[in-house]
Nucleic acid binder design. Structure first.
Lengths: 238, 238
DNA sequence: CGTTGAATTGAGTGTTATCAATGCAGGTGG
DNA sequence: CCACCTGCATTGATAACACTCAATTCAACG
């Protein structure tokens, strides 16, 4: 977000930005609140949630390192979701007035903001096309592909089944059954303390069954991502 | 979008904007194209589509009057969807350079753009929470509520069953069965040439069954909307 | 060792997908 | 005008799938 700033500007920004750490299931902000800040994930995993009338929740999208949430606050809207940390998560809290002044001072910064809006939109589309389309097995497969895509070793955090269900639009039991089946078939291996190590080829096959989007649009694997993440937040996985 | 401009500026803008009319099923732009313009719907209905591997399509969201699509082009991205007119549709084609120069000249115009991005994001969330959650009947009910929400008379266009299925993540047959059942139960009445007249109370009941989002977020009814739309584009409905 | 919360599994039911047939327009050409 | 086609909506029968409810297992923790 701040990639285009000069060193001096960066220093100014740094002083008013809070670095926060949230424990699993802690809320970062609540749906309906009037927001005075937006947030970027530095490390960890965040779910954006909308509550359903029966007390359940629907996860609208996930946010990982570098993703920005609460961006709607910048156009004066109340937060549209509740943001909840799914593991120990380090978050940057950026007050609105910082963004405000940057947009005023640096004309190109507005474009940075638009890029972030587009990122959120891409993620929202993914939620529809990949996570809410086709049979449960294909959805789970696409989720594992997504979660493991930044890892060179194809590892990913082991989300709890309830969250998987809420994200994929299926029940907890269905999510559990599919994951158990995948484990039995060695589509992934559970490495305790390290998350799941996925057979991406197998997952791609499963993901392609019925109603598959043409070409899943995932980040290229980021080398070294495992090395950085694992030791710092081992409790982040599993 | 141009609400904050002065009269003179508006005149400048008007000269470089194209007014286009698309027939049903005509594509406005294609997924993957590098875009040199964005579009606003003046009248009609547009679907944003992502192709699936089996030749089917998934409708990501709908765009109605005043909605803006192809906004991703402004940050240099290729169009993320194919935009297709669902009825006779009048569209405004705004070249990127117009937006470009407005953002440079009028600092507050960037904020207008961000508002539009947020509108798209809200619609994307709706696709997930309302249209891709819960049993088929509830999804269809929420769609009819959405389509009829701008009409004081609670009328809405009669989408073809294939499109309903592609938008709701169900098959054409299921969409047809649900609609036929609704018709038999007088949940709506088909007024040929005018679309469907919906019993919104009944729809709200059905929409609330299982997995319902807390509070559907629809526009308030716009008085006079029917009067304006119906005579101009009678072929738009039915 | 008992408690707790989550994951897993089972049995039964309900919904939806699939495949296939039928009905119902609006058009075209004889 | 009618036969014919075509595209779409509708309907039926069946199988696959996912949901519900309930029981069981498992791991973590005090």
């Amino acid at each position: 977000l701040f990639g285009t700033l000069h060193a001096a500007e960066l220093e100014d920004v740094r002083t008013v930005i809070d670095d926060l750490v949230f424990q699993p299931n802690e809320a970062i902000y609540l749906e309906g609140e009037t927001g005075h800040a937006l947030f970027t994930v530095r490390r960890g995993l965040v779910k954006l949630v909308r509550d359903l009338s029966d007390g359940e929740e629907r996860i609208v999208r996930l946010q990982r390192t570098a993703d920005i949430s609460g961006i709607e606050a910048f156009v004066g809207a109340a937060y549209k979701h509740t943001a909840v940390a799914m593991c120990v998560t380090e978050v940057c809290r950026i007050p609105l007035r910082v963004i405000e002044s940057l947009v005023n001072k640096r004309p190109d910064f507005a474009r940075q903001m638009m890029l972030r809006w587009q990122d959120n939109l891409d993620d929202a589309d993914r939620g529809l096309v990949e996570f809410s389309t086709g049979p449960a097995e294909a959805r789970v497969a696409r989720l594992l592909l997504h979660l493991s895509c930044r890892s060179a070793a194809a590892t990913c955090p082991d989300m709890c089944r309830k969250d998987m269900g809420a994200l994929l639009g299926v029940t907890t039991e269905t999510a559990s059954r599919v994951m158990a089946k995948f484990k039995r078939g060695s589509v992934f291996v559970d490495i305790p303390g390290c998350g799941l190590c996925c057979d991406r080829k197998a997952l791609e096959d499963i993901a392609a069954r019925h109603w598959c989007p043409t070409g899943l649009r995932h980040d290229p694997a980021v080398l070294g991502c495992d090395a950085v993440l694992t030791p710092v937040f081992p409790h982040c996985f599993g």
